[in-house]
Write a protein that binds this DNA or RNA. Structure first.
Lengths: 146, 146
DNA sequence: ATGTAATAGTTGGATTTGTAACTAACAAGC
DNA sequence: GCTTGTTAGTTACAAATCCAACTATTACAT
């Protein structure tokens, strides 16, 4: 057995990633929560629609790696607030096309601006030039199917 | 307003960190969950005790950035399984000293071994030499109080 | 010593999430 | 046409989490 002294939970990647993710999410979470009463899954859906235009729930699930129940509930709440519209596909009536309303787009624009600024602020806290490398590594880790 | 084309949620650090954290936690979660019926907060407490010896709930909270209610409940469940003992401090009777039992240490040793192997496997999936840089960046991000 | 504040940890209730089962619609083979 | 399987999305119930209030104990000031 390897020497247990080699191991510190503080350097264990899944742990460290969670700590970093949680800490770096707090400030942004505060905005979408306090300002719009939104949950994490809701801003994710909102952003996907804001960026990619109209999508189905399945599209979002594939892109965001979100389970369909999360999406279903997020979509429900966003629809209640009139941030998005749901339109049945005429060819395949199981499918629903989602799109932001004007109100939804306003919220998205506001939050996107804040996210952009916040991302910049996070990057500024890192050694110069490391951000792109970091993003590439995170993408690699996120892709891993475990 | 900045060009909205500059922004993609897939590169937004809090989002990317969450994706990486979630993906990289899955495999390890499967082990502590399936093999020992443990929850995330429970292995965290277990590991802190395994690594740092006996601690109080507050110590763990400070080190792991965990809220005291999470710790309280994790400690309860670990105590029920006889993985740890709780001992009242004689000087300050609010304080409880936590320590692993022999059974708890066995579980910890098993999981620690798996965590070590898994961490190595994760690192092997990254470009050579990038792991230490990544850990340093994650520590920086985790320290950020936001 | 006594009132006030701080700290360690627990508990209760509402909110959120996870898991599995479900409905509805389409597809493909026979 | 029918059966079987697949896919889109929803719902129900259990489990986990969050937040605020709570008990118990200690600390500190007057």
């Amino acid at each position: 057995m390897r020497d247990s002294q080699d191991f510190d939970v503080q350097t264990f990647l899944p742990y460290l990633l969670n700590q970093a993710a949680e800490a770096s999410s707090l400030e942004f979470q505060k905005v979408y929560k306090d300002r719009y009463g939104m949950l994490r899954n809701e801003w994710r859906v909102l952003f996907h629609l804001g960026i990619y235009g109209h999508l189905t729930a399945s599209d979002i699930g594939a892109r965001a790696q979100m389970h369909k129940t999360k999406i279903s509930r997020a979509v429900q709440r966003l629809a209640e607030r009139r941030y998005l519209t749901r339109t049945r596909d005429t060819d395949d009536r199981r499918v629903e096309h989602l799109a932001l309303t004007a109100a939804g787009r306003k919220v998205y624009d506001d939050l996107r601006q804040i996210a952009q600024d916040y991302d910049e602020a996070l990057v500024e806290g890192l050694p110069a030039g490391d951000a792109q490398r970091l993003r590439a590594l995170l993408v690699t880790l996120a892709k891993r199917r475990g």
